[in-house]
């Protein structure tokens, strides 16, 4: 909007430098009525954009300020004062496994959910008859409306007993893979189960976003592929998926964001531990930042609260980094994005 080009003169030719241009540096004059409305719109849009920035900075400032006591207290004193830090010798030592657990749980959820979500989205956008597609889309959207407490209860009480034999099987026959190694938990309150529940929770957002992107594939490109003799799947591979690439990444990142921050479901299912452990089927191995905050907060003393907020700060940073990485991925092949 901040064009600094001088306005075209009446015959449509841009004035050259030596001709004195009227009102240099201004946007061309449009009709007066238009101007008020467009200025209003510009300020509203700018304001909304700025508000987001202000909120972000405010959150960051809050986290840093409140985490400061924990960050500045000497490690020995901190571990002494905050009982639940257990074996940890410093704040970093404490938050490390939590970051690890958080990312592992979220990544697990993403790995499970993304292929399924893309499958459902493609089915509803390009395969299913229209009636069935809208019904299915509606059902998936309903999944998003279920509160996470319900997911937690369901995961712990219904899903865990159900998947127990499967986890045991994985452990027995695929135990050589580090993820499935260790002693399989008899209650199945393990990260694998958590990942599964989180996957169900992030399924709707990934499905909905990628479905919208798939539907926006220009008809022209789909027909170009079909006219070359592409089967439906080849058409999807040639025209739809490349077009939707950045949209898929955004969809997955939205899902990842939700999985990273999910609290209740993890808290209610996982039997926590504070290790750097890849064992997904063993109890007492990992914990996530959000669930840990919820678990410890009620009984934390002031320094403990500060330590928890420091872990929250870590979560904030992780989320920011994830989003920036996603943007970088999207931007890398911008030329080929089909945006022009």
């Amino acid at each position: 909007m901040t064009s600094t080009q001088s306005p075209p003169t009446q015959d449509g030719v841009r004035p050259t430098k030596d001709v004195e241009s009227p009102r240099p540096g201004r946007r061309p004059r449009t009709r007066v009525a238009d101007k008020g409305a467009s200025r209003l719109f510009r300020w509203t849009a700018t304001g909304a954009g700025a508000l987001i920035l202000v909120l972000l900075v405010a959150v960051a400032a809050f986290l840093v300020l409140r985490a400061l006591p924990a960050l500045t207290t000497p490690a020995a004193e901190l571990t002494e004062e905050v009982s639940w830090m257990g074996e940890a010798t410093s704040l970093l030592d404490f938050v490390g496994p939590l970051i690890f657990g958080t990312i592992l749980a979220a990544a697990l959820a993403l790995v499970i959910a993304t292929p399924i979500a893309l499958g459902i989205a493609l089915f509803t956008s390009h395969y299913a008859p229209r009636r069935l597609a809208s019904g299915l889309g509606y059902l998936v959207d309903l999944l998003a409306a279920i509160p996470s407490v319900v997911y937690g209860l369901w995961g712990g009480l219904v899903l865990a007993p159900m998947v127990k034999p499967i986890w045991a099987w994985l452990n027995e026959y695929l135990g050589f893979i580090p993820f499935f190694a260790g002693t399989v938990s008899p209650t199945a309150r393990v990260l694998m189960t958590v990942g599964l529940v989180l996957a169900v929770m992030i399924l709707p957002i990934i499905t909905a976003v990628s479905r919208e992107v798939f539907l926006q594939t220009p008809r022209l490109h789909e027909e170009a592929a079909l006219a070359l003799g592409a089967t439906r799947w080849e058409m999807i591979r040639v025209a739809v998926l490349p077009f939707a690439r950045s949209g898929i990444v955004s969809a997955a990142m939205l899902g990842l964001g939700r999985a990273l921050g999910e609290t209740m479901a993890v808290l209610m299912i996982l039997s926590p531990g504070f290790l750097y452990s890849f064992k997904l089927l063993e109890a007492g191995q990992q914990q996530t930042i959000a669930a840990n905050i919820a678990a410890q907060f009620p009984e934390a003393n002031p320094l403990g609260v500060s330590a928890l907020i420091a872990t929250g700060l870590a979560l904030f940073v992780i989320t920011l980094v994830v989003n920036m990485a996603a943007r970088a991925i999207v931007a890398r092949r911008k030329d080929f994005s089909g945006a022009n």
Partner: peptide, 21 residues
Amino acid sequence: VAVRRQVGMVFQRPNPFPTMS
């Protein structure tokens, strides 16, 4: 699909695949 492999088509509006070189 087999028919379309035998019969090529050029459309009214150009439609190269934007994600391809």
